[in-house]
């Protein structure tokens, strides 16, 4: 299976104190643990269970996910920006691996 590929949409610039909308998506099957394969054996659970968004090292938004979140989990949320900086997005998998991506934003 291909490695989960994160995709995020962040505006390039914003004005001081503006509330910007961030959209994130990561390709991941989010195997719920409820499904069975053709032989009737349950397919083990494998989901992204935690998502965090930081701006210049401070947590802006985070989310705990359960198996009822759809495959390729999509999240849309907001952040209030005062200074230019970097958004860091982290997804944590059930197997402990973390996928991260970063995006810069300029405040003028």
């Amino acid at each position: 299976m291909a490695a989960p590929k994160p995709r995020v949409k962040v505006p390039k610039k914003a004005s001081k104190g503006e509330v910007v909308t961030l959209k994130t998506l990561i390709s991941h099957p989010m195997e719920s643990g409820q499904r069975k394969d053709k032989q009737g054996n349950p397919i083990p659970r494998k989901i992204i269970n935690k998502f965090t968004c930081e701006y210049n090292g401070q947590v802006v938004f985070s989310c705990d996910m359960d198996p009822a979140v759809s495959a390729n989990p999509y999240l849309e949320f907001t952040a209030k920006v005062e200074d230019s900086g970097t958004f860091k997005f982290t997804w944590v998998d059930d197997d402990g691996s973390a996928y991260t991506t970063e995006k810069k934003l300029a405040v003028e």
Binding site: V20, Q34, V60, F61, A68, V69, S70, L75, A79
Partner: peptide, 27 residues
Amino acid sequence: GNPSPAVATFHFTAMSGEAAAKTRIRL
């Protein structure tokens, strides 16, 4: 009505600006 009722928990901070979020879930 799901096998387990928990879906997701969003955690906001003062830096979120607005307490609003969107996602897609399984029912």
